[in-house]
Write a protein that binds this DNA or RNA. Structure first.
Lengths: 147, 147
DNA sequence: CAGCATCCGCTAGGATACTG
DNA sequence: CAGTATCCTAGCGGATGCTG
């Protein structure tokens, strides 16, 4: 194994981590990184971005049909938050019955590229993770985690 | 703008999205992608991975000091889940006082690479997002979102 | 030091009913 | 069709106290 190449990759990672975590090496509560990341730790944001990225433009109920299990309420809340953050555009057509079309903005697309890689990683490694979970659960562990 | 290059990039994205979302174009509840992604939608997992990736090896309280605001309980729960998924290794030294060291596994590092890019994106675009939020909040919106 | 155990508030998020 | 409005609950996650 070529140590130099590995070390270079390591250095690149460290560099990026410094940038993310800040010079203090801590990510405080008011920190922008934390703030943004928290936005995507809800149940439906990432999924919405995937589907909008895949379909291009979708009406409300079209999107709802594609995201299995999402309630009307939560899809509305999710889309409003994404719109607020400038990641999704919402176009209302004043017709009867009403038509509303959602689409990723340019900023939304730039995020899509990142989360796609994360999604791909999840797909590629899901077997490994499931196996690890099974192996872990085989052994005894403290009661706290049984629940 | 070169349409061909753009189109090629588009095709790559579409390809990956198909892979993630599955042939049906839907991500059902039992889907592995959903399952994995849900694991990182908690408050502290990503942050723990960042800090472990940055420091290499950390004891429990060292890590706790670096993650601002995390409670002892939640750090324990988070680390156990990461250990269960095979992303973090936990080594206990039978000393008094006890010493426990946490470190990313190889699998954990492969994930780190992905989330670093996401973190970098968040850092780079936080201003844009904050501005979008302010602009959105300036205008009137439905009462539902005022809360 | 590195944790469990317990209590407990808050809120994300589901179910349902109603509307422009 | 695309939402609101309201009600309600599971469980995330904080505070505190105790242990090997």
């Amino acid at each position: 194994m070529n140590r130099t190449i590995v070390d270079n990759q390591q250095d690149r990672l460290q560099e990026k981590l410094q940038k993310i975590l800040g010079t203090s090496g801590r990510v405080s509560g008011g920190c922008p990184t934390r703030n943004i990341l928290d936005r995507f730790s809800d149940k439906w944001s990432i999924l919405s971005i995937f589907h909008l990225g895949n379909a291009g433009t979708l009406r409300f109920n079209e999107l709802k049909k594609r995201i299995d299990g999402v309630s009307q309420r939560m899809l509305t809340v999710t889309l409003r938050n994404l719109e607020r953050d400038g990641l999704v555009s919402r176009r209302v057509y004043p017709e009867i019955p009403p038509r509303v079309e959602y689409e990723l903005t340019e900023l939304g697309y730039s995020l899509l590229v990142q989360v796609i890689d994360l999604g791909e990683w999840a797909t590629d490694h899901s077997d490994q993770i499931m196996n690890a979970r099974q192996r872990y659960d085989m052994r005894e562990h403290s009661p706290m985690l049984v629940n």
